[in-house]
Simulated scan of single mutants.
Amino acid sequence: MRLVAPLVAAVLVAALALFPLADANTYVLSVATIAFIYVILAVGLDLVFGYCGQYSFAQAAFYGIGGYTAAILYRDLGWSIWATLPAGIVVAGAFGLLLGVPALRVAGHFLAIVTIAFQTIVYLLLSSWTSFTGGQYGITVPRIEPFAAFGATREAGFYWLTLVAATLAVLLAWRLATSRIGKEWQAVRDDELLARAIGLDTVRAKLVAFVASAAFAGAAGVLIVYYLEGAYPADFAILTSATIIAMMIVGGRASIVGPILGAIAFTAMPEVLRATEDYRLIIYGTLMILAMTFIPGGIVGLVRTLAERRT
Rank of each mutant, 00 (worst) to 15 (best):
I121H: 00
L111T: 02
P142G: 13
I121P: 00
F150C: 03
F150L: 14
W129K: 05
V106I: 15
A112P: 08
A149W: 13
F132E: 04
F110M: 08
A149S: 15
A107F: 13
W129M: 03
T120R: 06
A177W: 05
F110V: 05
L172D: 04
T178G: 05
V122C: 08
A156N: 09
V164R: 02
K183G: 08
E145R: 13
L172A: 15
T120W: 02
S179V: 13
V122F: 09
A152H: 13
I116N: 00
R175L: 14
I181F: 08
R143Y: 12
I139N: 01
T162I: 05
A148L: 07
H109A: 11
F150A: 14
I121A: 02
F110R: 09
G138I: 08
E155P: 02
R180C: 02
L172R: 05
T178C: 04
T140L: 10
Y159R: 07
L104V: 01
Q119C: 01
A166I: 11
A117I: 09
L161Y: 10
V170R: 01
V141M: 05
L176T: 14
F118G: 02
I181W: 14
I139M: 10
A177V: 11
G134N: 06
A165H: 04
V141P: 05
I121F: 11
W129N: 02
G151R: 04
V164N: 04
V106R: 11
I121W: 00
Q136N: 14
I121Q: 00
F158E: 09
R143P: 04
I121Y: 00
V114K: 04
G135P: 08
F158S: 07
R180K: 15
L104D: 06
A112G: 15
A117W: 07
E155Q: 13
Y137S: 14
A165K: 01
T133M: 14
I139T: 03
A165E: 04
E145C: 07
T140W: 07
W160C: 05
A149H: 10
F150H: 10
G108S: 07
A169N: 01
T130G: 03
T153V: 07
W174R: 12
I144H: 11
A173Q: 03
E155I: 02
G108H: 00
A177R: 03
T130K: 12
K183R: 15
L104G: 00
L163G: 12
T120M: 10
G157F: 05
P146Y: 10
I113P: 06
Q136M: 10
L176W: 12
A173R: 03
R180I: 14
V122Y: 03
